[in-house]
Structure formats: structure tokens, C-alpha cells
Design a protein around this nucleic acid. Structure first.
Lengths: 209, 209, 209, 209
DNA sequence: GATGAATGAGTGTTCATTCAT
DNA sequence: AATGAATGAACACTCATTCAT
């Protein structure tokens, strides 16, 4: 009777380990089942296919990041609508108060494994380019901010490709932190410097200096 | 008689296309041979194995980047030794003269395909982590610069993990440019803004602002 | 529905035939599967690899021979310990009572095919040198006997390389019988002469004549 | 110009090494050519195919053994025809004068490599069963001797299968000596004991004891 | 819910051999 | 006399997936 209804859990656990070790494409369902102490048939009872299995591990965490980011950006957008000077005076995330960044980091490290799966182990799956989606959201937000700033400062609009590039760099920068600093503590120690560096870029770009 | 001595070229061309399309791991030697209009045996006459075939495409370009970067960093290091104030006054690559960056970009786009193979299609090959090597070199250089700057400014040394992170971000930033902007012209248009952004980070970090 | 659960049997049968015909190294798994009316994947469901397939055919019989021989030698050793004159008076297997030899032959012929696989068809597998193990056991036993005999007869010890050689010859002699006389009946008819010949060698060596 | 006409020699030397190391079947012509510093085409200029290459190494030595053995047996047969009592009185090779055996050993060790190729490395080639031919000659000779002895002693003829078996055992016994004792010196030290053992078998078989 | 069996296409790689030059 | 190029079949093995029970 042991195991019984936890087969699915065992499979997910084994799958996570396998995907972590070998990446999506090189992972073997055979191997996952074996390590779960279960036959292939069982896997296909719970999951449609390899893709579905991977998705079961990462979809929800990924949606959560998306939501979180959208929420964060919406909040910021509201603040700007209320006070158009906000963007100009403070720049984006320019203040030395990194609370929201810290919160983001907290969330990411709470789902450390899943984030790593998404960022570095998803090649071959439909999440291969999952960061692109984050970039897209970020980009949209920054485009709006940029427009406001430029209007205020009577500058020509910054090229949208530059905005896109910056968005990508920022996302990648966070991703790298997550995938190469293994504990939240350490990450939080580095974070302020990182934020300083990233916001410094904005300053320069809009000649705040 | 057609083809004759160009079999190797045909194979390399076909291989490049296949690797580009599917990435190293998912590429099929069978498919490469078929598209080259050649049998598998022929491939193994010219190349030791899959790895060797891939290497034949990317090794030399990669070595060239390495050389280029080392040369560039050595040059900069020399300038600093001659004039220690250089680093402080101008910061690294801070001037609005991006000549060396433009040259780098020119080189990268001259080997556009190979660079893309290296950066985004090499997973599974021994070039999987080729960017790490570039990061390592960059990091070493920046560590040296950072030390000089901090001494001059009576600041505590910047954490080496931060230096590492910045180096990575910079390399990735260039890599992204290359892999997502498909012509040199466009890249050169964006480049000044990118350089501005990246150097802005340094300014802020060392409180030049 | 035909076949159903006998796939493994069919594979083993087909494998035995193929190994018998071509030997381990030259045998083709493809061919084995085809003759079994089964796909290659099926084979790999039941067996880890080629080696494992071969092992499944011969391991047990081989272990049995080992056990049988060890038992036989231990028995003989006990008799000698009880009566040290045994070895001298009777020599090893010198009596005209070949019961144990006949039993051995009976066993060998009960596994005729497997023995042939082991002895003449195993080249390239890990059973390549399986006879060496039998020789080793035999040698150990004969070394002990030889020492006792020589002490009793005040002879210098027989060179261990000679003992080794004799052991090998004896094992080979039995092996040849098995691999070249196709029925137990015929073998049993020849056996007494063979035993006579082999024991005659011992007589002469220890100057019993 | 170097090499020039010695290509064939280089190929033969390289082939011998390869066959020695891997055996006939597992030997790779590719590898042989490479180690000879020559292309495959060259090999096929001198040799018809793999089989022919192997044959070039071992055919002559093998023919020589055959001749030697036949000569030896013919000589012995002549002696018997001249003096029918010879066989009975002395038995075959019974005297303690092993001159002819020593000569045989000398010859075998003079062609040590080739003999090893023939005996242990020929599986898969047409020399796979080359020892059988030696057994056949030996058998023919022994059959004749046996008949004479039995007539003289008024014994029933010894079963031809026994004769065959003994012949095989003797050939194998010599082969084993050659393939497991690496120097002629050592072999000559063991040889007297071996001869003693082998002739002892004959004594017993014909109840000379 | 889950098993155990089976599929069949696919993988990279090696082979002896051929042949125009 | 020898090269260098190429063939094409064969190899052992792995894969995600299916399905009757």
C-alpha cells in the first residue's frame, strides 16, 4: 500500500532532479520513472508527455513571476499617472530603497529549483525562451516610462531597440544572480551594488548626470 | 565529376545550417550528410566526430575573440600603468569615443553565424560554456581596474562577486546584441546608447556622480 | 495474441542460435531480434545490453560447473586429510572408478549448448577466458596434492608451471570432448580411455611406474 | 623518397602488431594503415583483402610446421617399417631423449609471433581452425602406430575417436606451452616434464605398466 | 491507477572496400 | 606505386510513446 497516491509526487520529484541534472532535452523519461520507482505507463497516466511533465513543474512558478512583475509595473505606472514628476525626479528604481527588488529576490529564491529549471534547463521545451516574455513586459513598461521622461526633458525618444536591449540585460542580470549565487543571503548582500549599477545606466542614458 | 573536391565545404555548410537550426545536441549527422548530398562515411573521413565537426566551424573565430579581448585589455592596462589617473579620470571606456567597441562589433558581425553558433547553439558541445571564458578574462581585467580606482578614491574594494557579476552582464549584453540584432548597421546605431548605459553603471558604482 | 509472454524466451532462443552460429563478437542483435520476430527495443526491455543477453544464457551453467568442481575437489581434499596415504596409493583419480567423471560429463551434456557457448563462442565477451577460472581451481587443487605426494616420496616438488600446464591440458581435454563429441552416449564410451590417458600422465610424472 | 619500396614491409609489420593486439576479426585495416603511415589504397595494392593480408603473415610459417610434422612422422614411420618392434619397445617418444621435441620447440619459438597469430589470434579468418589440420596429420600417424602396437600386443584396436582426442590434446598441449610461456628457455625447462606426462598417457593406454 | 511489454525510428560511429587520379 | 576521397551497410544502443490488461 505504500506510495499509493503519492506516485505523482514521486514522479515530479524525480523529474525535477533529472531535469536539473541534464536539462530538458537530455533528460530521459525512462530514467525519471526508474528513479521514482515507477513504470513509464504510470507517468503517462498523469502527464500527457515529456513537455507536460516539465510544464507541471515550472508553469505555476512562472505565472507567478509574470503576475508579480505585472503587478509591480502597474503599481509604478499608477504612481506616475498620479504624479508625472515621479519618473523624472526619482528615475526608475533609482532611490536607495530596494525594497521591491528584495521582495523579488525573496520570491525567486523561494522557488530556487523551479527558477533554475526555467532559466537554464529548459532548452528544447516550450519554455526555452521564457525569459523573453519577462523581457517583453519589462520592455513595455520601460517604453512608457521612457516616453514620459523624454517628453519632460525635451529629449528625442530613446530608440525602442535600445529599450528592448536594456530590458533584456536587466532580466538576464537578475537571472544570472539567481543561477550563480546559491543562497538568498549572499544574493541580498550583492543586490544593492547590482541595483546601483543597473540604475546608473539609466542615469547616464537620460543625462541625469 | 560535379562537386569533386568541395565535399568538405558542402559538409561544413550543411553542418552550419543544421547546427543553426537545431543546436548542437539536437543536430543530426545523418541529416547533415543528406543535405550535403554525401554519405555518412564521407563525413567521418573529414571529421573525427560530431564534436570535431562543430569545432571546425567555431574554434578559430572563438580563439580570435579571445585574442582580441586580451589584446584590448592589455592595451588598456598599459595605459593605466603609464598614467594611473587614467582610470579615475576617464573611467573605463567612459569617453564618448567607442572606437574599440565598434571594432569589436565589426569583428563579431564578420563572423555572425559562428558567433551565434557559439553563443546560442553550442549546448551539449564543449563550447557550452564558452562565454564563461570571456567573462573570466573580463573579470580579471576589471578586478585590476577596480582596485586602482578604489585606492585612489579611498573606497573599500568592491566585492569580487560584484565584479564577476558585472563582467558577466557586460559579456551577455554584447552577446545579446549580436544574437538579436541581425545586421551590423543596426547594431552600430544602438551601440553608443549601450555603451552609455554600461559605463553609466560604473559611474554610479564608484560614486562618480 | 500469439507469442504474448514468450517474447523473452523467443529472444533467448534466437540469441542462442545466433551466438552458436557466429560467436559472441560477430553476432548481430539486429539479426537476433529479426529471427525472434521482435523489434530491437523489445530486446533492450529484457536485457541491459549484448553482454547481458549472453550472460543470461551462460552465467548460471557456468556457476554450476564452478560449484561442482569446487565441491568435487573439496571432497577429495577431505579424503586426503583423513588418510594421507590416499593420494600416494591411488593417485588422483587413478582408480578405474570414474563415477565422478561420468557425473561431470552428464552435467556438461545436460547443458550442451551453453557449454559450447562458453567454451568456443564466448570470444569478445567477459566469458572469453572462462576456462582459465576452471584451470585456476584445478591448479590449486593439484598443487596441494602434488606437494603431499612429493613429500611422501621424498621427491623435489614439481614445478608449479608444470602443474599449471597439466591443469590446463586436463580442462582443455574435457572441453574438447564436449565440443567435438555431440552426444553423451558417445562421450561416455570414450571417457574411460581418456581418463586412463590422463591419469597415466600423472603416474609417469611421479615415477609410479 | 624514403620508404619507397618498403611500404609492404611497413604494412606487414603494422598488421602483425594490430592482429596481435586485437585478433583477426577485431583488427581494423584503417588502424593498420595509419600506424604504417600509409593510406588504405596502398594496402589494397599489395593485398587482395583483409584475409590476404593475414595470410601473408602466417601462411608460410604454417606450411613449415606442416612440413616439419609430416617429415617427422614419416621418419618415424620408416623406422617402424624397418623394425616393427620399435613402436612396441620404445613407444612413441617414450625414450628420455626429447631431441625432436626440442627441435620442434626451437622452430616454434623462432616464429613466436606468427605462431601466436595462428593459434590465438586467427578467429574469424580462414585459419580459425588451423590446429585441426595439425591434429589430422598427427591423428593419421598415431592411428598407424596404434594399429601396429595393438597387433603386436594382441589387443583390440583403440577406438579411432580416442586416437583423435589424444592427438588433439597433444597439439593443444604444445600450443598452450607456446602461447603461455614467453621464452624458449623457460619452455625448454618445462618440456621434459610435459613429455613425460604426455608419454605417460600412452603407457597407461596400452597397458605398458 | 498502474504495470509490463513492445514499438520503430532514431542516434553517433565504424567497417572493409573501391576507384579515379 | 600510392593517394585521398567516398561508399553504404552495418553496428550497439536509446528514445518518447502506446496500450492491453
Amino acid at each position: 500500500m505504500e506510495g499509493e497516491k503519492e506516485t505523482k509526487e514521486k514522479l515530479l520529484k524525480s523529474a525535477k532532479a533529472e531535469f536539473m541534472e541534464k536539462g530538458y532535452a537530455a533528460a530521459s523519461l525512462r530514467s525519471i520513472c526508474k528513479n521514482a520507482g515507477v513504470t513509464t505507463g504510470a507517468l503517462y497516466f498523469f502527464f500527457k508527455d515529456k513537455e507536460d511533465l516539465f510544464e507541471s513543474l515550472v508553469k505555476e512558478p512562472f505565472q507567478n513571476i509574470l503576475s508579480m512583475m505585472e503587478e509591480h509595473y502597474n503599481l509604478e505606472a499608477e504612481q506616475i499617472e498620479e504624479n508625472e514628476d515621479y519618473a523624472v525626479a526619482e528615475d526608475i528604481e533609482t532611490s536607495d530603497d530596494f525594497t521591491s527588488s528584495v521582495n523579488a529576490i525573496k520570491f525567486l529564491y523561494a522557488h530556487y529549483d523551479e527558477m533554475n529549471l526555467l532559466i537554464v534547463k529548459s532548452q528544447g521545451s516550450k519554455f526555452s525562451n521564457c525569459l523573453d516574455e519577462l523581457v517583453r513586459i519589462t520592455e513595455k513598461h520601460y517604453a512608457r516610462l521612457s516616453e514620459i521622461i523624454c517628453k519632460k526633458k525635451n529629449m528625442p525618444n530613446v530608440d525602442e531597440r535600445v529599450i528592448h536591449w536594456i530590458s533584456h540585460v536587466q532580466i538576464e542580470a537578475f537571472a544570472y544572480l539567481l543561477t550563480h549565487v546559491d543562497s538568498e543571503e549572499k544574493a541580498e548582500k550583492i543586490l544593492p551594488h547590482i541595483m546601483k549599477y543597473l540604475t546608473g545606466g539609466w542615469y547616464k542614458l537620460y543625462d541625469f548626470i
